[in-house]
Design a protein around this nucleic acid. Sequence first.
DNA 1: CGTGCCCCCTGTCAGC
DNA 2: TGCTGACAGGGGGCAC
Length: 277
Amino acid sequence: MPELPEAETIVQGLAGPVTGQEIQGARILKADVIQGGASAFRNGVLGRSIRQVSRRGKNIVLTLDDAHRLVVNLGMSGRLLHRSHQDPSPPPTHPAVIMELGHGETLVYHDVRRFGRLHLMDAPTYGDWSAGLGPEPLGPRFTAPRLAADLARSVSPIRSWLLDQRRVVGVGNIYANEALHRARIHPQVPASRIPSSAVPALHRSIRKVLRDAIRARGTTLRDYRTAQGDQGSYGTQLRVYGREGEPCHRCRESIQRIVFGNRSAFLCPGCQPPPEE
DNA sequence: CGTGCCCCCTGTCAGC
DNA sequence: TGCTGACAGGGGGCAC
């Protein structure tokens, strides 16, 4: 579910409320979301303070005062919610982990499908993990020349390439499809067959879609919520994702849905010609 | 090694 | 109304 814009929005909503707070209690209701064992997790977080809230790709990273990192991957349906004592909103329906912060405040990991994971890492482990991921698409190391060089080394369909977090982080199925439509590239074009002249447009499209989605506080299709439980509004700006049969805003042709790599891809057959042969 | 396919799990919705 | 199957923002594991 949540891609970079959703994770970024959660980080922005969480930083103020939880930075500096001590984790005074940890109730693990669904142990299968904890990577590496529930008791090690509980022992590792109890009594620690949250020093910083940040993000690596789609993952939310809580840096603790002993330099350990609590990495939260939201999977398809995960939410990371800050709740205060007098919170008027109804209590979460599928809490998996509840961390108590004192003053009646809680940090709740909520996940219906439980594809998400909470992983407590020591500093070296975090470094290794992060080093295995691709560049941040909104960061300085993600440049059009680097993208062109990286694309040239893979025969994967470009949509699959964009979803691979070792290549570039943070792009998921919604924003991959949106960026490819803007760049007028068919999702099944092999990465290495994208002409270098087309790479700057793809680079620009990826960054624009992600930035615009952050501004809209993400896309809520069903499960995603901000740290305060609110919905994101980028759904109204989607040009292809979920619009099968509706007209392309550019050329009025009917948006198509195709399936490969076990996932739906959405495209405009007028704007995004299929790869030859 | 790179690539593609299956599966993890629960909920919702369309079609019958 | 209720059943069945398809499908859903992700990613790990495994076969080739």
